[in-house]
Design a binder for these strands. Structure first.
Lengths: 215, 215
DNA sequence: GTCTATATATAGATAGAC
DNA sequence: GTCTATCTATATATAGAC
């Protein structure tokens, strides 16, 4: 008895899901998990609150879906880099540049990770998908460091994970803490000149460290 | 008509306030501002919920009081350092060491700052006390860098605020992001050996940067 | 799959006695 | 200054028709 609509704009579950995730990403990223409101998400969606529970079951599961999608995006980004053909120092500079620009361009992602840390990464822990992630970056860095040491351009044998941390910390902090930092020091960290200076600084610091005397 | 108690454990407003702030610090630091519960704070306090509102007016104002007290603590710490008599490189290493150990020892503070960033630093903005803070660190770093350049041990003329950021970012990130980092890479960042390695690394990286070729 | 209306719980804030 | 009891708003989650 049900009449099926034949036009192109018929029910599109996949699109509805994506729409909800888009809105939820902004809501949670802005107000946090506890501070985010399902009602607010529903209002900004082209669908209803009922559908949110229909698709995602609960607020927490919706949040997890948001987090998973955010992480999925970076994996694709990093996998696309072709660094093995470049000289070690240049390869590292490209990788640092990419991380820097990614965090700068994706404050939502940075905020979601901050929020997840407030919650002791308990949701991430439930997600196999996220846990398996990011490991490839370490392998990429490890390969670059090995080549660099072999060629003699890097004199220090460093732990790839430590180097990843040194890079991530700076790129992430600039975005995650820009509000308190900006308030205390009255400086806008997103100004082009400041950004360029910072990007060069972290690259120089990392390269400089690897070219220092071996510990 | 009221009978005044004469024993030592009579009403002690100052102590009650501090008690509330202690408990509230842990609650907000653990669950965030939106996630923290006034009821939960009241239960863990030796006083009642009514008193929390009597002293602090609202949940948000209590949170601000917590934040202000947390920031007040560091100021004292940094002011106590006597760095002007040390050689520039050593002075910087002491400062970095101090920052590193402070963040490591005060995860509550780190979490409160993260939370405040989630809220766009809006509470901090209302507090003159906090806004005037931390500026002394920049002066300290500026003096060290000037001496270093004058003596020729630092070849690069760097912005003191940039250097502060390079140091803070690493020390802060290690603590703020330890849960997501630990989950993804299965490493405990608080192990003594790891801590020592990281502390040396960030110092070497900063010093190395300052001794690099001038931009 | 989608809607409106509603149940149910909970949390921030307050009343008012002592 | 301190207590117990309570008001009121709001938020997550669900019912049930279509």
């Amino acid at each position: 008895m049900a009449i099926k609509r034949e036009n192109g704009r018929k029910n599109d579950p996949q699109r509805t899901r994506e729409d909800i995730l888009d809105v939820a990403t902004e809501e949670f990223s802005t107000y946090g998990l506890a501070g985010g409101r399902v009602d607010a998400i529903a209002e900004k969606t082209r669908t209803s609150k009922r559908m949110i529970y229909y698709y995602f079951g609960s607020k927490e599961d919706l949040y997890l879906a948001v987090l998973e999608r955010a992480y999925r995006k970076i994996r694709t980004l990093e996998a696309d880099l072709q660094l093995s053909n470049l000289p070690p120092e240049q390869a590292l500079r490209v990788l640092i540049s990419t991380t820097f620009e990614h965090d700068q361009a994706n404050p939502d992602f940075v905020r979601l990770v901050s929020i997840e840390n407030i919650h002791h990464a308990s949701h991430m822990l439930r997600s196999e998908e996220i846990r398996d992630l990011n490991v490839s970056v370490i392998e990429t860095i490890a390969a670059i460091l090995e080549r660099g040491v072999a060629q003699g351009v890097f004199t220090r044998k460093a732990d790839p994970l430590d180097i990843h941390m040194l890079i991530s910390a700076f790129c992430f902090f600039r975005v995650s803490n820009r509000y308190t930092f900006g308030t205390i020091f009255r400086r806008d960290l997103s100004e082009p000149a400041t950004m360029e200076r910072h990007k060069t600084m972290i690259a120089d610091a990392v390269i400089g460290y690897l070219q220092g005397k071996a510990g």
